[in-house]
Nucleic acid binder design. Structure first.
Lengths: 310, 310
DNA sequence: GTTGACCGTGCAATACTTCTGCATGATTGA
DNA sequence: TCAATCATGCAGAAGTATTGCACGGTCAAC
């Protein structure tokens, strides 16, 4: 609705070079260059200046980007009001989230939205946190459920409205015959000397585990890398090490493994938060989704839950 | 910058039918229909409903249009701020106005803008008041100077910022040997029984003359119709009738005609006002143009001016 | 200093989106 | 009942954006 070339300019600003931005946007550098040239011509200002072998944004371009956020938010509000005014609004809601959220939280949200808005279409997209924000900005998703990891847009970013959904506590995953397996809870540093099974480097959960261990005062010895929970479970079952799993993650059955809740101050946990484009909150179907998400989170973290051992 | 389909929707709303809107926009009805269908799809709402053999805007569409004005104004503000941030901004200013304004006011405005912003390009477009507003909306003009005639957008229209520029008093144009020619001023109704030379019906000045005469309590006998001041002057010179000319209008020399200032309460005059897209006031070159326009108006209406007899 | 890698831009060919022209179905008023 | 008017869908045409490639410029390492 708003000129998409602004988005291109923003990516150039974020990445620093036309070529990198083009790569991110799946365009050629030539197309990006051409688009920004046209935008600058339409605006009657210079947006980019040569700077070494790259480009530098002019003051005008920075002003443009800064104020554009407000324009986007305003448009989202209008869009929401328009949807409110149409009782028959199709109200397509596209939810995106990282794998655990996609599996544990989003299905019930989708069901709730479908029930409340029979004519709406709901779509779930599984994606990394970073990717989720890109999907939001590209208007390919309307609600993102992400794990807080370094490098994400700040909670005060004017482009988004973010709120806390749930603190998902971490459990230590050990073989059933491990000394710690019988404990009702452990401190993370009690496992400091174990061999560790982590996610692949660069993945959100790898980073999260490293951070948790660092907070607990040690650096884990990484014996193996597993991309999927199932693989990790199998490795722990085989006695090759221990790992961390978030409470929300369901593990496949059939392994001789045990989850031991972690304690500590703070309790090791991953912080899950929701994000929408600023201004879109009033969108009826999206409002339902947010409510449903909060409730799903409440159910998930309710005390007395006994099904997380699986 | 904002999705141009909103503009299409607005014209459909104004004209009532897709076909009429298409005609106004120089499109085919098919294209308009297709565009609005796409807009509705992107928004997830119904915008048009069949109504008889035409269409009716839904509540959602009306909300959309109402709020869109604000979005446009916001964008203009941003555009202005961006231009302010670029000292080298090209700052193209396109001025439009009806013939008299184009001749009497706009050249000095253009000169002033060019002097203040050497890199800017100024362009003057002569157009009817109605057309001027269309040019503004289509972003083909940035400042319009129009005569207040019925049917124009109201001064509170959220799409524009309008301000009074000048009250251009009307003079009675008579042959030099006419009994009223020696008077220093006359009341309009003193010419009630004359034969009148008016502009073509439908033109702004025709309407203005009719309104002035109606206010003075009579309905003029229209003997001839002249589209150009020059023609009118020739007809008056030939003794075929009298007419009204605004003070600002320059008449060609060589005719034996006399202008007699009108008095009355209020003094018959045409109200000239400026109009810009709401939010664009801060655009540097445009701000200069507005200042220059006000000054040109002040000069034009300064008492003691002696050059208007021509 | 020179070489090689990298970057942004311009140009012609191409892929895509949008518009047109016409046919169809529906509605209104004579 | 008939003719006029209107919105819409579809296939082809017009226009716009994108690609692929070549060029000139900049930086860093040797």
């Amino acid at each position: 609705m708003i000129d998409p070339r602004l988005q291109v300019l923003r990516v150039v600003a974020a990445r620093g070079t036309v070529t990198a931005a083009a790569h991110d946007l799946s365009y050629t550098p030539s197309a990006v260059s051409h688009q920004l040239r046209g935008l600058a011509r339409d605006l009657g200002v210079t947006l980019l200046e040569p700077d070494g072998r790259g480009v530098r944004l002019t003051a005008a371009a920075r002003v443009l980007l800064e104020r554009a956020d407000e324009l986007y938010a305003r448009w989202e509000e209008i869009h929401a009001e328009v949807a409110e005014a149409d009782p028959e609004a199709a109200g397509a809601v596209r939810l995106c989230g990282f794998s655990t959220a996609a599996a544990a939280l989003l299905p019930s949200v989708a069901a709730r939205v479908r029930a409340a808005h029979p004519r709406s279409t709901v779509r779930i997209i599984e994606a990394d946190p970073t990717e989720c924000f890109e999907l939001l900005l590209a208007e390919q998703a309307d609600l993102a459920v992400v794990v807080a990891v370094p490098g994400l847009p700040s909670t005060t970013d004017p482009r988004f409205e973010q709120e806390s959904v749930l603190d998902d506590p971490l459990d230590l995953l050990v073989p059933t015959d491990h000394p710690l397996a019988t404990r009702s809870s452990v401190l993370l540093r009690e496992a400091a000397d174990e061999s560790w099974i982590l996610d692949r480097p660069g993945s959100p959960f790898h980073q999260l585990t490293q951070t948790a261990c660092a907070t607990a005062g040690f650096s884990p010895f990484v014996a193996h890398e597993a991309a999927e929970w199932e693989t990790g479970a199998a490795l722990v079952d085989a006695g090759l090490g221990v790992g961390l799993v978030p409470r929300l993650a369901r593990l496949p059955g059939g392994y001789r493994i045990t989850r031991v809740p972690l304690r500590g101050d703070p309790t090791p946990a991953r912080h899950i938060r929701s994000s929408i484009r600023r201004g879109s909150r009033r969108q009826p179907a999206l409002a339902t989704a947010l409510t449903a998400l909060a409730e799903a989170a409440r159910r998930s973290s309710a005390p007395g839950r006994t099904d997380w051992q699986i």
